[in-house]
């Protein structure tokens, strides 16, 4: 559905996107995961024709973006990161206006507009002005405006930023529902949990480059020799002694919670417990964990997703 090849974008001396290549298959949810400034929005803006690229190619539905920009626009639906709705109009007026831009009209427009509002759970608020909406409701309307013309591919740029958990949950359910109905989705986020829950495949971006891509299992496999131990202790933990345990690569401390990144052997747990017992440190909670995307990002880049 979408093929991006060696994409480059410069802003003066700054290389915002550097040689990015990825493809999105029809019917899948593809995630672009990375911290702020990684190049996710720039990539999206190039694909949707908002900004010009400095190199590379983009094809959507088999059409080259440079040669068939207008036809490509009909295939795409965009949900921008910033709320892009008219506060002084009603929900229905917003959705029907944007649907009309894509050529919908008459009874078909009306029906599709109401169906879209129902899909995002705003059918009861169709005649209400958007300025009376909560933040979560505006986010849902933001999605509806990008969906109304039933694009082949929906591009969502961090659609859940700054909203309550209930609205986030509703949005994610809507996305999964759309995907079940066959819509291809390109989803950018800096929330690891969203990417893990929604995406079939993920590209991890940092500083304008893709550092890894694949499905969840493939990405975890990049650091499969790693595993994690989470401990909660009482009192001051003996960090110096713990750092000497063989195979412990890193210890993250947050209050009385310790997270050990361990490599290879699986004997670290026993060794860590021995050290804690020697120092008479009481353990309140304990769990082991396979690597998640946050760990993958940290291992590959040395930074956290939300630094």
């Amino acid at each position: 559905m979408l093929k991006v090849s060696k994409l480059v974008k410069r802003y003066g001396e700054n290389l915002a996107v550097s040689d990015i290549s990825f493809s999105v298959n029809p019917g899948e949810i593809y995630g672009l995961l990375g911290p702020n400034g990684a190049g996710k929005s720039t990539t999206i803006n190039i694909i949707t024709g908002l900004i010009k690229k400095d190199g590379g190619t983009v094809t959507v539905g088999g059409m080259d973006l440079d040669k068939s920009l207008n036809q490509v626009k009909y295939l795409l639906g965009i949900v921008p990161q910033d709320l892009a709705v008219y506060n002084d109009l009603t929900a229905y007026q917003n959705v029907s206006f944007f649907g009309g831009l894509y050529g919908l009209k008459g009874a078909a427009l009306k029906r599709q507009a109401m169906d879209t509002l129902e899909l995002v759970g705003l059918e009861d608020k169709a005649k209400n002005r958007v300025k009376t909406f909560s933040g979560g409701m505006k986010r849902r309307l933001n999605i509806a405006c990008g969906l109304v013309h039933r694009p082949k591919m929906l591009i969502l740029d961090e659609p859940t930023v700054g909203i309550d958990p209930q609205s986030r949950s509703h949005i994610m359910e809507s996305i999964l529902k759309l995907n079940k109905e066959g819509m291809t989705i390109l989803y950018t986020t800096h929330y690891m949990e969203e990417a893990e829950q929604l995406c079939n495949r993920i590209a991890i971006l940092d500083m304008g480059q893709i550092v890894a891509q694949g499905n969840l299992a493939e990405l975890r496999g990049l650091i499969e020799e790693h595993w994690f131990i989470n401990l909660k202790v009482k009192g001051t933990p003996p960090l110096e002694a713990l750092r000497t345990v063989a195979g412990v690569e890193q210890i993250d401390v947050s209050g009385n919670a310790l997270r050990f990144r361990c490599k290879n052997k699986r004997t670290q747990l026993r060794d860590i417990l021995d050290v804690l017992a020697e120092h008479h440190t009481e353990i309140q909670d304990m769990a082991t964990q396979e690597p998640n995307l946050e760990d993958v990002f940290l291992t590959l880049t040395g930074k956290r997703l939300r630094d």
């Binding site: 921008p80 892009a84 894509y102």
Partner: peptide
């Protein structure tokens, strides 16, 4: 209203 992006992304 930040809708300039939507307009530009539309045909």
């Amino acid at each position: 209203a930040r809708t300039a992006q939507r307009l530009k992304a539309s045909p």
